[in-house]
Design a binder for these strands. Structure first.
Lengths: 314, 314
DNA sequence: TCATACATGCGAAACGTTTCTATTGCAAGC
DNA sequence: GCTTGCAATAGAAACGTTTCGCATGTATGA
């Protein structure tokens, strides 16, 4: 392992000079800077992060905490985060599971992006009290050191329900996610508002955002043949479950029952008929979240953000 | 930030004693160990990784290098890796993009799992020369310090082609991936062997593992109405592209042309008709890779591994 | 000519741990 | 009672950097 010392020896200067040279500090002359840098190159010097981290008390690494790697859902989000993070001079690492949760207090990373409901609000607020920079994407949290970058669940949900109503459905089923889930609550609220203001009967069935719960929800929908139904599943996994149930039970998914989803998973467009879904740029979502986190870390003024959503097949 | 020093002061012992106590060393008495540990608890002490890493010259972190987060492909693989890594006392982080590539030489991590063709063989071998523990999942590499955990591409491919032949196809199209891609080469080889030994005409169309290239490959397949064709796409993305092309061009995907894929993506089963695909446990693949990496890090004897594949709709 | 300023470089401390070696005190063995 | 041995603890060095404060030498201005 060649270190800064070895370079100093070879270049016959002090280690501090080497450090300054390698960091392009104006405290060394142009000449020695160049000289040292080429020597470092020749010796294949690579700085030791542990040493740097210890001294600098920062790592320029930020992390996303995911509850699981499952699901196609995250890919685009992560791409957005990664690109923006690199742009801002950070490395992004992705972690899942409770072990990684020590990275932040252990100062291995400079900040976190949370989209993982297995972390409780209390836990996160505790970290926030300790001034660790945190951005959450999966809940609303009130704290000076925590920022939120959330979806505009309202607009998309409203559009979805209005679309169902336009198709002349007689009743709308809203298939919600877990009871305390922020997105689920918001989407439900917006959907209910539209249904009520348009005076369309509606019913809420509680699911938990996975496909099985959608399937089960499907079985709870009572279908009378002379009526037409709209089903607004609050995410696509559940929409898929409902689709499967209806398909297996020979329900006409165009004329008798219309399904709308949320998230615009790729699968939806391969279904026959395809299912409309609320969509938004996961890429932009991820990028925005990182931008806000960066502001937090650099102690710039920063605001909570809202990511726009749209509705359609697009 | 409460550190080991603060605890020492409070407990009125030396910092070395604190360190021993916190690490459950037998060098301190049971009594003081307990005493110090409760004090540490009370003070909310969390060890500083930078300090530990610097001193211990290791981090107990391993990383997966992915070329992108794109695609549902990785989810299960990562779950397998993560679970096994935690079991073995490691944290797993997921990195994508060229920036992260310094983590290893910078000693931020103890070893890497590579499934990212943007890293060249030379690059990896250079690291291997430096004794960094590396496991590759996407190529075959001959080096004492590099182990491979690969798919058994042969068995699955052979089964897929045999299945097509059993369906009485008159000709088989093999849609390959990138020319130098290890998996693609192996799958092609195995497929060709079967076709030749069974004396079925075949043709290879070069794709690049993405959906578009599959679509284009589809357009290159010349269909004569009195013949029946088998198409073996070397991954599911391309199979999907072909499916789309055929669907748009009204080709009968049951009687005129049969598509087989590789990887068993979730989407495949929602297609109508569903497409058969070669499958294998990505979870097991990931877990095995981590096991081998662990052996390498701990300098245990270890072997290259081969992950079994199967064929079907299951 | 002398004081001042500045460019350049050096030495040393610091970051928070772990772990080797040294010291102390006490019990056991003769 | 005196050595020996061991358990328990303390001291100090080390890991690899960065950065503060200081020293040196040279150029500048009056």
């Amino acid at each position: 392992m060649v270190g800064i010392r070895d370079i100093a020896k070879k270049a016959e200067v002090s280690i501090s000079t080497v450090s300054y040279a390698l960091n392009n500090s104006p405290r060394v002359s142009e000449a020695t800077r160049k000289r040292i840098q080429t020597i470092a190159q020749e010796m294949n010097y690579i700085p030791n992060m542990a040493g740097q981290n210890l001294r600098k008390q920062k790592t320029d690494i930020i992390a996303v905490y995911l509850s699981s790697y499952q699901g196609t859902f995250y890919s685009e989000l992560l791409e957005g985060m990664n690109t923006k993070a690199n742009e801002l001079g950070f490395d992004l690492i992705v972690c899942s599971g409770k072990r990684a949760h020590l990275f932040l207090p252990q100062r291995l990373i400079d900040g976190i992006l949370v989209i993982d409901m297995t972390y409780t609000d209390e836990e996160l607020l505790k970290y926030a009290d300790l001034k660790y920079p945190i951005v959450v994407l999966d809940r609303k949290l009130e704290h000076d050191n925590v920022k939120t970058v959330l979806l505009d669940n309202r607009t998309g949900s409203q559009a979805a329900v209005k679309d169902l109503i336009k198709k002349d459905v007689d009743k709308i089923y809203i298939i919600s996610g877990p009871q305390k889930n922020y997105d689920s609550i918001e989407r439900t609220k917006a959907a209910v508002e539209v249904a009520e203001s348009e005076k369309i009967p509606y019913e809420i069935i509680v699911g938990n955002f996975d496909e099985t719960s959608g399937y089960e929800a499907g079985s709870k929908i009572e279908i009378e043949s002379w009526k037409k139904y709209g089903v607004f599943a609050l995410n696509d996994e559940m929409a898929l479950g409902i689709y499967n149930y209806m398909y297996e039970n020979d329900i006409d998914i165009i004329n008798q029952l219309i399904i709308s989803g949320f998230d615009k998973n790729k699968v939806m467009q391969y279904l026959n008929p395809p299912i409309k879904s609320v969509y938004y740029s996961k890429y932009e979502w991820g990028a925005k979240a990182v931008t806000v986190l960066n502001d937090l870390i650099k102690e710039k003024e920063t605001e909570d953000e809202l990511i726009a959503t749209y509705y359609g097949t697009n």
